[in-house]
Design a protein around this nucleic acid. Structure first.
Length: 258
DNA sequence: ATGGCGTACACCGTACGA
């Protein structure tokens, strides 16, 4: 089974890109982030015509996640649910999950955080702490393997960023990294690093100042697997090609074969 | 320090992203 994740930065703007990419990469599952559209306006038709089932969880203008799948997902869930009931951490549309072949696909759009120390940064840290509880709860209550993927807006290591970063740089601060590592403590493994050790592989490049042309990028889109799935994984690739197309998303797809 | 580039909504600029 091939599972991919892609922050498309507006599903309506990127519909032709997604269709073109799926034509060449007929994955079984495609997790999308930043769809930026309410569910009634999601461009379903073209995807359904090509045989994909849709699970969508969107909002106007910002955020929004969706899962396209060849076979229908079972037990689809949206948001953190009950554990976030007394918080403000589940108002934005950032989490959707569903089950295929004893794998629960967890599709995430982690908050960006704006700037270290800002209100949005505090929200990001608290959101990651909620995510940790959420994933721990899934592990405790379900027998499914987990594929936790999406736009994490965090690069964990120096080799995941084109240059050295300061501790005050968003997406590279120690506090963010610690919060994400705590999420992964329940034994989630970064499957890209099972196959590729070297630096220079990124999934996001700033639109500005020729970021992509100069490969000044960050690896912030990740696929994490529980141990049994990780062991059986056959490959994991970042496909930079869509980033070379006209009017691209600033992120590019990451694909795992399990 | 700022803005650079792109998207959405809707104002003809502002909010937000990473």
């Amino acid at each position: 089974m091939k599972i991919a994740t892609w922050n498309v930065n507006s599903v309506r703007t990127r519909e032709p890109h997604i269709l073109k990419w799926l034509q060449a990469n007929p994955v079984d599952v495609l997790c999308l982030q930043e769809t930026k559209v309410v569910d009634v306006d999601f461009p379903r038709a073209a995807f359904e015509e090509r045989g994909y089932h849709l699970a969508i969880y969107g909002q106007k203008s910002y955020n929004g996640v969706a899962i396209l799948s060849r076979n229908p997902l079972k037990d689809v869930t949206m948001g953190f649910g009950e554990i976030a009931a007394d918080t403000n951490l589940d108002e934005q549309k950032r989490v959707i999950t569903g089950v295929l072949d004893n794998i629960r696909i967890v599709n995430l759009y982690v908050p960006n955080g704006s700037a270290v120390g800002s209100e949005k940064y505090e929200y990001k840290i608290l959101w990651l702490m909620m995510l940790q509880q959420y994933i721990q709860n899934l592990r405790a209550t379900q027998t499914c393997e987990l594929c936790v993927c999406g736009d994490f807006n965090i690069a964990l290591e120096a080799r995941d960023i084109y240059n050295k970063r300061k501790p005050t740089d968003i997406m590279a601060s120690p506090e963010e990294r610690k919060a994400l590592r705590h999420v992964l403590d329940v034994r989630l493994e970064d499957v890209f690093r099972k196959f590729t050790d070297e630096e220079g592989h990124y999934s996001w490049w700033d639109y500005r100042r020729g970021g992509f042309q100069n490969n000044r990028g960050w690896r912030i889109d990740h696929i994490y697997l529980t141990p049994d799935l990780y062991e059986q994984a056959k490959g994991c690739e970042i496909d930079v090609e869509p980033r070379t197309w006209e009017r691209p998303s600033d992120h590019t797809p990451v694909i795992v074969e399990v």
